[in-house]
Amino acid sequence: MRPLIGVTTYVEPASWGVWHDLPTALVPQAYVEAVTLAGGRAVLLPPDDLDADVLRALHGLVLSGGADLGPQLYGAEPEPLTDTRPDRDGAELLLARAALERDLPVLGVCRGMQLLTVAAGGTLHQHLPDVLGHERHRPAPGVYGTHTAAFADGSRIAGLLGDEAEIHCYHHQGVADPGTLLVTGRAPDGLPETVEDPARRFLLGVQWHPEVIRDKRLFGALIDAAGG
């Protein structure tokens, strides 16, 4: 059987057919295809903060991208441009913490990397242009930024991608303090691009969107760790 990989979903207004602006649990098909092409079976997980029992049936977890995390989760007040989804925050932190307790393989993508950081006691920058002085990580609505990321020698990410790689990113928040996680990749401006926990079976957060190119190196590593 292919490893079952849970993928967290968005809840956003969506329209199809005769239906318009219905609250809908969804995720870009790119995530599903990335898991499938790497040899796994994607299982979509809508926000549910009652328990994390679904992890008993899963072999791995992808924490997907999306809206900003609530800053109260890391002891900060919201800034004007922070756009949150409290239903996702509660449900996904529950899943992330339970996955860490079980040592379940986890890949965090963009918001997912930030979620892992907060779960590990870290903090975020709420609006990167205020910190970095540029908007290259989210150059325009719906337009991915592209730049290189450099990776630490001996890290898991370097073992998968080499010393550096060109990445596609779309975010206006970023990691300020990684908590107990290890920063193993950075953008040219110094922003953390990857976090890891070498003591775990597979825990990797990336600040970019590898699903866009169906990156078999990252999703394949998750599947391999999950027993694929």
Rank of each mutant, 00 (worst) to 15 (best):
G227S: 11
V109D: 03
L44H: 12
V143W: 02
L69A: 06
W19Y: 12
A14W: 14
A149E: 11
G60V: 08
G75V: 11
D89V: 13
E33F: 00
A38T: 01
D48P: 03
L182Q: 12
V43A: 12
A38H: 02
L58E: 07
P28D: 08
R200T: 13
G60N: 07
D49Q: 06
Y170T: 02
R102A: 15
G205D: 04
L204A: 07
D83Y: 08
A67T: 04
G39H: 09
G162H: 00
L58N: 06
L182C: 06
L182R: 13
R111Q: 07
E101G: 14
T36V: 15
L63I: 11
G174C: 10
L73T: 13
V195Y: 05
I223C: 11
L203Y: 09
L181G: 04
E101K: 15
Y31M: 09
V143E: 09
G179I: 07
L107G: 03
T84L: 14
A67P: 07
V35S: 07
L50Q: 13
P23H: 02
Y31D: 03
V183N: 08
D130M: 04
V18R: 14
L26P: 01
L69D: 02
L58F: 10
R138F: 00
A67R: 08
D224N: 12
K216L: 14
R186I: 12
G227Q: 09
P86Q: 15
R186W: 13
A119D: 10
S15C: 00
G185F: 03
R85G: 01
A99H: 14
G112W: 08
D103K: 02
D130C: 02
G122A: 09
H20S: 12
D153E: 13
G190Q: 15
D68W: 05
L104H: 14
